[in-house]
Write a protein that binds this DNA or RNA. Structure first.
Lengths: 367, 367
DNA sequence: GCAGCTTTGGCAATCGGTTGCACATCATTG
DNA sequence: CAATGATGTGCAACCGATTGCCAAAGCTGC
């Protein structure tokens, strides 16, 4: 724990000024090759390491990024954390991780406290209101993940619409007509988006989707959700996330209700474990690790950006696709009149965008 | 992104010196109540936030801790990260997370780079050699997790011996006589400890335990491990961790080998998913989140310690206990001569310490 | 009314770097 | 050979806080 070697120690030992030592490292072209080599050699011999905080003070750049997540516990964020950490590290940045405990107040406090100590923020699944986010982002460089706020704020989102439509069509193709949506936190933008998309898909496909919840987006929450579904009288459920889906699935099985024989389950996120739970979960997958990497990239380019130029923010949309495993199957009592019950009610607003040939078709699969 | 309010702005606005503003916050007793209130009010009005890096420079204290893990991907570390982050946050510390990619060189580089920017390190499952760790810890405050090095280095470990003995006894009680140990990284202290304990347990219990591996401690590694086990001709396996156990279990099932009908599997760590994989995994559980909390506590008390006093380092040992689920069952062909084959070969070195009544007993369980 | 003490607030140095500017040195050129 | 320019190095200010020391002001008691 000996005192650390400073630039002055090196300067004295090398017989030059401290500024020369500084330049030997940070602007080598401003110094002659001979002195630079000498200084570097002395620094090496003494074991000199620049002090990051001293370096950060004049420049205001800490080479550190903060990642805020609502709940470190949630496996969904593991991939995000991983991707973000790796990308940050490879760019020479250090990553600070903070858990906001699903609370907007804590989120704001963390930002306040970290400001000055970090160069920017990645806000994953922020629980802040749009206004709060806007004002926050106007004073701190930040990118949001899992949220779209406006043209001026860089963000990384998963194409939930795409995924949710696929999920609904998959279930309809299996003969399901009454679907329940297991809602997550009402403060979650992603939750609202999923539900909105599902409602329009339901209209387009001529089926009914009812919302149950909100539930805590955890395995424990899934148990409660399962019981609520039984009351809602649905043959299939789409869950806000895999945790909820796994929890519900286990609860159904524990109550002697077959999955997917009696009820089908679709999750979201393809978290760790979704492939080896029982039954393996049909889920909406997206490369969430990529989301972490993209978020850091966006933030870094935001930091590099000359703030006098055009303030056009980037937006990364990650594809979402359905992974069909074993938690979904044919509806228990396929309705006799399977051919397009009331397809003509399709809203014009969707008719234009979705010229998708994948409409309800035969459900003669067997298990 | 307006310029940040500094202590000087507050001083000017309040009509006092900067030092007075500083004292108003950091040493209120050195200042009259009236001026303090006035200064605080002005600071509040201006939205003043102390700059953490400027504050860290004179004090040398950054209020930041670093957590280094070999692989963020590994769910085992999620609990650790969570526990550490929470404990750090509640003590007003910020946590930096870094992945060493299972490499001792990267680990060392990270420590080098972070030094000065953090007050101390939590090294989880370090891949460094004992010598490297010793020299590293002699110059940086640090605590290690999952490793015991010496009396002078604070550490948090899981009582692997206890757990491994329980696992071995559990399998023996089910009639298993030939057990394979699925080895993890050879640089892992925990891996070596597990194997050593297993060897002595085997001698004591009069069974054979063979080591297969090392394998990558991942689900993918588990598949390779499963195939190796088939060659080793064992009726049960104990895996270095749950990832390996789950991977092996899936591989066995895919190859038509019943788990636990034909082969029993015991994992380690009780990671997320161990309870809902197929079959639910019998595993050695420890409160790893507590390990994270304890590690941070230890580090914090290490930092608070007056370094002139006695250098006695703390050591936290966390209990490990067996969680019996469904991946273990009776050995496929229970040997006829079940009563203590060669118990007298028990090494004296263990005879003294393990006066443990739990020796091989009946295996008449049915499934 | 003044010595002596306590309280209060300011000055200035400091932490360890970075960087604008001045200056010295040396080579080039008219 | 002097003027000019290019190059290399040092001085000192600065980033935003903290803190030791000093002095002014206020208070006590004789």
């Amino acid at each position: 724990m000996a005192r650390r070697i400073t630039i002055h120690d090196v300067a004295r030992e090398a017989g030059v000024a401290a500024s020369t030592v500084s330049r030997a490292f940070s602007s080598p072209e401003r110094i002659s090759a001979t002195t630079r080599e000498h200084v570097v050699a002395v620094a090496q011999r003494l074991g000199y390491r620049p002090n990051p905080v001293a370096r950060a003070l004049p420049s205001g750049k800490t080479q550190t990024l903060a990642l805020l997540v609502p709940d470190i516990t949630n496996p969904f964020f593991f991939g995000l954390i991983r991707g973000a950490e790796r990308q940050a590290a490879s760019a020479g940045y250090t990553m600070v991780l903070a858990d906001t405990g699903e609370s907007s107040a804590v989120e704001r406090t963390h930002v306040e406290r970290l400001t000055g100590g970090v160069d920017g923020f990645v806000l994953a699944s922020s629980r802040l209101t749009d206004e709060a986010l806007h004002s926050l982002i106007s004073e701190h460089p930040a990118v949001v993940v899992n949220r779209v706020i406006g043209e001026d704020i860089p963000c990384v989102v998963i194409n939930e619409e795409q995924g949710m439509r696929q999920a609904a069509e998959h279930l309809v193709s299996l003969g399901h007509r009454r679907i329940a949506y297991l809602s997550g936190p009402s403060t979650s933008w992603s939750n609202r988006t999923k539900w909105r998309t599902l409602q329009s898909s339901a209209r387009r496909l001529g089926i009914t989707i009812t919302k149950v919840g909100p539930f805590a987006p955890t395995v424990a929450g899934g148990a409660a959700a399962a019981d609520a579904v039984l009351v809602a009288d649905a043959t299939a459920v789409i869950a806000f996330n895999d945790l909820l889906a796994i929890g519900a699935s286990r609860r159904f099985l524990a109550r002697g209700i077959g999955v997917p024989e009696q009820i089908s389950i679709v999750g979201c996120d393809d978290i760790f474990g979704a492939d080896f739970c029982q039954p393996p979960l049909t889920t909406l997958a997206a490369d969430i690790e990529q989301a972490g990497r993209s978020a850091v990239d966006l933030l870094l380019s935001e930091l590099a950006r000359d703030h006098t130029d055009n303030p056009v923010a980037d937006k990364v949309v990650l594809a979402s696709h359905l992974l069909i495993r074993e938690s979904t199957g044919p509806a228990p009592h396929p309705p006799a009149n399977s051919s397009a019950p009331d397809t003509e009610s399709t809203g014009s607003e969707f008719g234009s965008t979705t010229t998708d040939p994948e409409t309800p078709r035969a459900q003669k699969e067997k298990r």
